[in-house]
Amino acid sequence: MVIAKAGMDGHDRGAKVVARVLRDAGFEVIYTGLYQTPESIVATALQEDADAVGISVLSAAHKHVFSETAREMRQQGLDDVILFGGGIIPPGDVEWLEQQGVRRLFLPGTSGPEIVAWLQQAVSAQRASGSGG
């Protein structure tokens, strides 16, 4: 599981809390630290053989960050890696981001267990389909 902060956004409270919640739920979590680029996030995902990549964006650069990361993931052949995220994202942008390849966005007010439950389900579904059944 790679949890990342992208662009120039320093708001890392949410990313760190999610990283800890996932770690406490039994996931192996790599937190990238701040100021990553779509390329560096995808490189980390490749290197760590991640099942999922979660990105937190509170700087309003979400359209750029998510769409570029999704594109880079496709280019690197990471089609089976789940891209998800959260942050300050206007509801009107959610559908567009999902069309770019973001599987799920968690908006403010989401509980820890909700993220854990979704991710467990999504990862096992992905693994099942990836292994051919």
């Binding site: 662009g7 120039m8 956004d9 100021y35 680029t37 700087s59 309003a60 650069a61 359209k63 750029h64 960050v65 570029e68």
Partner: peptide
């Protein structure tokens, strides 16, 4: 905006997507 806060001009590659946003 964030590029000014971190000391980068708006045309810096790291500023992409951040210009005038925050």
């Amino acid at each position: 905006h964030l590029p000014t806060l971190l000391g980068y001009d708006s045309d810096h590659p790291r500023a992409r997507g951040e210009v005038g946003k925050c």
